[in-house]
Design a protein around this nucleic acid. Structure first.
Lengths: 374, 374
DNA sequence: AGCCTGCTTTCAACCGGTTGCAATTTCTCC
DNA sequence: GGAGAAATTGCAACCGGTTGAAAGCAGGCT
């Protein structure tokens, strides 16, 4: 399906020709010729299967079958129709098809904030996969509000074939209700009975904890994200597990917004814990904390070690560069689309890639420096 | 190659009836229940205007008019129909509507790379405005390839009401061809006969040039982006104008990819020019150059002053923080949507905001230090 | 009464594509 | 050569909603 609409100019000329010849040869004109299907105001109408029918002499149903039901028409006919479609610049109208089939070829990706670098790779991966599957990906923003999320999903429900909820803040019941109408895949969250894609964080966290342990840290703070974010609680839980194993204590701050600003405002909370190292819920918060340290004359890593999560764009450029735990969100995005488009069990099985988080050592972590709790 | 982005503007409720229940086989096996077409996974067909017609006793056409053509039916009738629609949980099917009206309520935003921070604010602005106009915004990625851009546009063409081309790399004829089918608005590019939104860069560039002049720079290099990017040529041209006015010479490097990597690989070219300051096509390239300087032991701003363009996310966090020329892309995004949705000349006039670029002084610029051309 | 007017509502066609079923053509095989 | 099967293709209905034109029905005026 790679009809280069390139030939747009050419196609338009042909189109005009078709329209002209239509009025001439009108032997069995069954429709009112004055109705012009809408495109742009003053724009040229799109090419339809009826146009192809007219130029090839076959009926619209044959055109439809030739283009979308392989093997249902004579090879020669199919060839001729394909050629005509190509030269006219025909593109199927997904909306019209939907009316009868109910399938839109569209998947929705619902996330809190498209300008959040955390989602970059997720979006990219999902997009890549969707393109390969011949699906259109639609992204909806929720601005971190569960009510907006609910609203967005409701609006999208009638027009998409499936929905990917990334870092959803909806209640479990709400998600279940949605999943009963359309196929749903969760990303960065689990819920019994609903397919989900969650990178395995343990390896990355273990390496990070070991790293901190080797540097002499015995008390680590967790800079928490919003309380209704499953992933924030999940990361804390895993961190606690691994830290306990390594003989390190973990103390979590009160929840803050998962943004640069949220991280920046948490410096005070962090210092109060007396911890010598911080693991932030995500890189944005870690970067904010880094900035606050700079403003507050807390040397990093001299006075405080900082570890982020996700390895977003920009983490490499901070000063010092941010040590972080990279999550394979691009793969997660692909995976999510795959789960949504997979039709049989075999496909589901085939998608079982590991999705492991990876510790990325940079410059924001160093030897523990005992510091009196403020 | 299609990424969509939808802004939800109208509240809606999730349908309540649930006939089919998904198999509860846990999260691992993800078995899809037999072969249920994704079209109507709820099993319960959506409620249509025909259902409302049946319960209220009016004809479908009256239902349609009551709901969408204010004033065309008797107030009492409209009230009754609205009530019935509400209680049945009716939602209009946008796809079906499209078939007759040709209007989808969807706008496309075509850009090279959604993970490019340059487009953050553009996307955000466009989204905000589209939401306010009750439109859905779909984003398509082109990965900087004009052929992919063509394909993406071609695929989107039949399903959207209008298209925003951001930093398009298409040929003029191709853009004109598209604009014959649908409304088109260009961002960061101009083309006679096609509406466009281009921030006024002159004020920001003038301030930047004056700044460099005050620091004693007499030779400035322009780190050029791709040759087929109108905006890259445009920035060079304006820079040359202002520099000439200030008695500063400008030399452009050979074109490079507008990415961090592209900037990083250009350090050698830059040093060869013998210039004491660089203006990069965008912040990504400036950041790449900054990194290369760090690796190549070229102090910034001690040995080289660097100025970027756009003030993207991350520019604030580099070391040193990047001096840049901020472009009001959020406003540009709003403006583009406005132009697309404006129906009469009056609306076009109302949108005439200035969109001025602004010089942002940070830490990557300093006094000129003469250096022999390598 | 008769006629015109204006407001409501219905009829019926239509958008672009899909699909069950029947009609037609082509192929097989005796 | 012709019957029967198989392959092709056309007909017509349909999806959900929109819309021009016409019908139904009040009231106002001569």
């Amino acid at each position: 399906m790679r009809v280069g609409f390139v030939v747009c100019t050419t196609a338009c000329e042909i189109m005009e020709h078709v329209l002209r010849s239509r009025s001439q040869s009108g032997k069995v004109t069954l429709v009112s010729p004055e109705h012009v299907p809408a495109s742009a105001p003053g724009g040229k109408p799109a090419v339809t299967i009826y146009d192809i029918a007219r130029t090839t002499g076959f009926s619209p149903s044959t055109i439809s079958r030739a283009l979308h039901k392989p093997g249902r028409v004579k090879p020669a006919t199919e060839k001729a129709i394909r050629a005509a479609a190509e030269s006219l610049g025909y593109r199927i109208n997904p909306m019209a098809r939907f009316v009868t089939t109910g399938r839109t070829g569209t998947l929705a990706l619902v996330l809190s904030d498209i300008t959040n670098p955390v989602f970059f790779d997720l979006v990219r991966g999902a997009e890549r996969r969707a393109a390969r599957e011949g699906q259109t990906l639609v992204i909806a923003e929720t601005h971190g509000s569960s009510s907006i999320e609910q609203e967005a999903v409701g609006r999208l429900l009638p027009t998409v074939d499936g929905i990917i909820l990334a870092s959803s803040r909806l209640e479990q019941d709400q998600i279940r209700a949605i999943s009963e109408h359309k196929n749903v895949v969760l990303v960065n969250r689990t819920l019994a009975g609903v397919p989900s894609v969650v990178p395995q964080l343990q390896p990355g966290i273990r390496d990070a904890v070991n790293h901190l342990g080797a540097l002499g840290h015995v008390s680590v703070a967790f800079l928490a994200g919003p309380i209704n974010l499953w992933m924030s609680r999940h990361r804390l839980r895993l961190l606690e597990e691994e830290a306990t194993r390594a003989g390190i204590s973990v103390v979590a701050t009160s929840p803050a917004e998962p943004t640069v600003e949220g991280g920046r405002q948490s410096l005070h909370d962090i210092l109060e814990t007396g911890a010598t190292a911080v693991v932030a819920y995500n890189d944005l918060m870690a970067i904010g904390l880094l900035l606050a340290c700079g403003e507050g004359n807390v040397p990093v890593p001299g006075g405080l070690s900082i570890i982020g999560f996700d390895d977003i764009f920009g983490s490499r450029f901070t000063s010092p560069p941010l040590t972080t735990i990279r999550t394979p969100l691009a793969l997660a995005g692909e995976e999510a689309v795959l789960l949504l488009t997979a039709t049989d069990a075999a496909d589901h099985m085939a998608s079982g890639e590991p999705l492991l988080a990876e510790f990325v050592l940079r410059g924001s972590t160093g030897a523990a420096v005992p510091r009196p709790a403020a």
